[in-house]
Design a protein around this nucleic acid. Structure first.
Lengths: 246, 246
DNA sequence: CCTCCTTGGTGTACGGCGTACACCTTCGCG
DNA sequence: CGCGAAGGTGTACGCCGTACACCAAGGAGG
């Protein structure tokens, strides 16, 4: 006797399946068999596949709040909240930073989240609530609305904890010395920088790169810039349309 | 008598189709009929659909070089190359900025490029060459290899001219006053900042937002930060693993 | 000239996908 | 007890990518 299906069970199964076997494994048919049910049964709980994906996003985003709570009592690495920042109140910074790092942890658990969120155009209440909270942090710290707007754009999808790793990974698939030789010859700059330190003898130390470090490096670079704009009370460029350097 | 097919004709048709009707319209079958040919004929010129997409990326990326040339003799907006930068040689900055803005123009012509590039794992020579050139610009300006590495990560997919607009667009679909009312009530911060200035009477001026401005704002924010790190001769954090604020 | 091999286009077919539609079962409630 | 809604089923359609066997044209070598 099977438990009755409902929307939450469907979404949970979809998330589990995506976590285990990747997003491509999540088809209505496959998900149905996973639930011991015929494909069309799912449509009684989910409008269509898009709605399913939206639901999955909601589930994942719902976990971020829990993550934030979990890290608040955790070890707050000493000296993590003030650094290159100016002297004034930097509490928005820890708030934003914590929020985004929490999102990143969730996204690492659910690697499919990025691809789904990026193809989604529908903004569910959960998504809206998420951005609303983040925006609220800036505004509460006295950021003007235009500055907040630009700053959110500047952070871009990093607010979801995504690294933008279109770069990278030219290494990692190159144990073949001949292709490495060719790579360094054809793309010397790439080879030098790609995180693979090429030694004199041509061997490669594929130390890869520390994704977490890269993420925080970029995040802090942005937060530094943002703090600077905020400190100097940035305003939108006036009526001189050319040259809108922040 | 139809002209004989070849790889270039196939790729060109695919790009044209994607430009005109979106990426989803590009199926092997549809592309074949577009070329007046049976679906399987394409496989004589392209290994499979992934290879087709890779080829499309190469075509688009190939246009970036032309764009750079085009903008070099064009009107270089006065005072566009030095701004918040420090006094020292900032030529890398104009180079990088020009490169990225050129990529952005190409990406605006081929909106599918983002989605394709993001799902691609294979790095074609064209893609590698592209990043190699950009990396070369930094290294030529004296950026250390580690700094260059981090900086490329920080720029992330912005090097392809992508804006990360997961945020935004809560407006744009809200002429219905009731839903606007609900939106401002439920997500006040979002509503205030979303580029829609809510007036006293509740009407909304949906001025949207200037994507080009947002892109350059974010880009320059990053370039400012990068310039600062470069100027102060940033080095990787030593053996103190905690706190690696740039 | 004829042959043969390569290159490129064809036709058929398979398994997968999302989902419309009509149907049947089960269950809660009046 | 009966009935209507809610939930699960079965069938079918039109897409998709592509494996495989086949055929047509054209150039190379005898």
């Amino acid at each position: 006797m099977r438990e009755r299906l409902n929307r939450d069970r469907v979404l949970a199964a979809a998330v589990a399946l995506a976590d285990a076997e990747g997003l491509d494994a999540v088809s209505m048919r496959r998900l149905a068999t996973e639930l011991g049910v015929v494909p069309m049964a799912l449509y009684k709980h989910v409008a269509d596949k898009d709605a399913l994906l939206d639901g999955m996003v909601d589930v994942a985003l719902g976990e971020v709040a829990g993550e934030i709570a979990a890290q608040d009592d955790g070890t707050g690495a000493p000296g993590d909240d003030l650094g290159a920042g100016d002297g004034n109140g930097d509490s928005w910074r820890t708030g934003v930073r914590g929020h985004i790092l929490a999102a990143r942890r969730v996204q690492l658990r659910h690697r499919w989240l990025r691809r789904v969120l990026e193809t989604r155009t529908a903004r569910t209440p959960v998504v809206l609530a998420y951005t609303d909270t983040l925006i609220g942090t800036f505004r509460a710290a006295g950021f003007s609305d235009p500055l907040t707007h630009h700053v959110m754009h500047a952070l871009g999808s990093r607010i979801w904890g995504f690294t933008q790793d279109l770069f990278e990974d030219a290494d990692q698939t190159a144990p073949d010395p001949a292709s490495v030789e060719l790579l360094t010859r054809q793309f010397p700059n790439l080879a030098a920088v790609a995180g693979a330190a090429v030694h004199d003898d041509g061997t490669v130390v594929a130390r890869g790169c520390d994704d977490q470090f890269e993420f925080e490096f970029a995040l802090d670079l942005l937060l530094d810039g943002i703090a600077r704009l905020h400190a100097q009370d940035w305003r939108p460029p006036g009526n001189t349309p050319a040259s809108h350097r922040p």
